[in-house]
């Protein structure tokens, strides 16, 4: 499958601060890709270099195999970006702004009209067509930001923190819409603080920290390779021999509750059950807790994504 985005050894410094230390990212055409990392990790810098807002120091950024500087007209027309920060405008209505946005991408007003109508409909902004941006709520501004990214019908959609500051209902609504766009064949690059968002939506992710990619793969693979899962067993009758019987496992015991941290609980479970039963204890219940990308993030960086 074609690569929609390929970033090779990308470096960028601001004065003496190194923002990117040599990033490599490859995103397949049609992927739903997540770029995860804490504030200041280099996510937005990476995106801004890709879209022409920031000049790189060195490295290569390609979109559908074309260089983003030499072939900027082609590469920028392939990308629609919904920036994290809202833009403001004091003069024009939402409708006018959307037509301007289409115009910048070389689309005439009459050719943009069906898409503009579709987006106003789809994103629930119809009643606000003739409003100014300052009259909108935060959620409405976010919807408009997304409409602006989509008005030229790009193949690649970059969503930089697309659900930051929106309520739960809108977040779920937007997630459904992003999935719909992905199912329609769009390549999506998502940056987010919400781990749940990445787990729910992305088929592959890169974790970036201090300007470096520190892990990549599908959320499942990452959770498998980096994460650990929890297994809690409650005993109805505890034998004194149980502790010794389980000495090969990592666990903690409080009275009749034993909690294991395991790499692969499915594999270990039969052996654990057998050892507990053989020790003369009785099992009352078994619970497993799945590890999340948050755990992966924690184990790789030593801190939470929002810290």
């Amino acid at each position: 499958m074609n690569e929609a985005i390929k970033i090779t050894n990308l470096k960028k410094s601001y004065d003496k601060i190194i923002a990117l230390k040599g990033i490599d990212i490859s995103i397949k055409d049609g992927a739903f890709f997540g770029l995860l990392g804490p504030n200041g990790a280099g996510k937005t810098t990476t995106i801004n270099i890709l879209t022409g807002l920031v000049n790189k120091d060195s490295g290569e950024t390609k979109v559908f195999n074309k260089d983003t500087e030499k072939d900027f007209r082609f590469t920028r027309s392939q990308i629609g970006i919904s920036a994290q920060e809202f833009s403001q405008d004091w003069f024009f209505t939402l409708e006018k702004l959307l037509y301007f946005q289409a115009g910048y991408f070389g689309i005439r007003k009459k050719d943009a009209e069906p898409k503009v109508n579709e987006l106003f409909d789809k994103l629930g902004l119809n009643e606000k067509r003739n409003s100014r941006l300052r009259q909108l709520s935060g959620g409405m501004k976010r919807r408009f930001q997304i409409a602006k990214a989509l008005v030229h019908d790009p193949k690649i959609i970059i969503l930089d923190e697309p659900t930051a500051g929106v309520d739960v209902e809108l977040r779920h609504e937007l997630w459904r819409y992003f999935k719909e766009l992905h199912n329609a064949g769009k390549t999506i690059l998502l940056t987010t603080h919400y781990i749940e968002e990445a787990e729910k939506l992305c088929d592959s992710v890169s974790i970036i920290n201090n300007g470096e990619v520190i892990a990549e793969g599908s959320p499942k693979e990452l959770m498998k390779s980096e994460g650990k899962e929890g297994l809690t067993i409650h005993l109805s009758k505890s034998s004194s021999k149980v502790k010794n019987a389980l000495k090969n496992f990592t666990f903690t015991q409080e009275d009749t509750r034993i909690h294991f941290t395991l790499k692969d609980p499915e594999k270990a479970l039969p052996e654990i059950i057998k050892k507990i039963v053989d020790s003369g204890s009785h099992i009352a219940s078994i619970e497993t807790s799945k590890s999340s990308l948050e755990d992966v993030f924690l184990s790789l960086t030593g801190k939470g994504i929002n810290e």
């Binding site: 807002l53 920028r76 920036a83 833009s87 403001q88 991408f105």
Partner: peptide
């Protein structure tokens, strides 16, 4: 300057405009 202060410069810089 107004575009800079209201965050609209990216709209131009990220569009296929030279």
């Amino acid at each position: 300057l107004q575009m800079k202060l209201t965050g609209q410069v990216p709209d131009l810089m990220q569009a296929p405009l030279s």
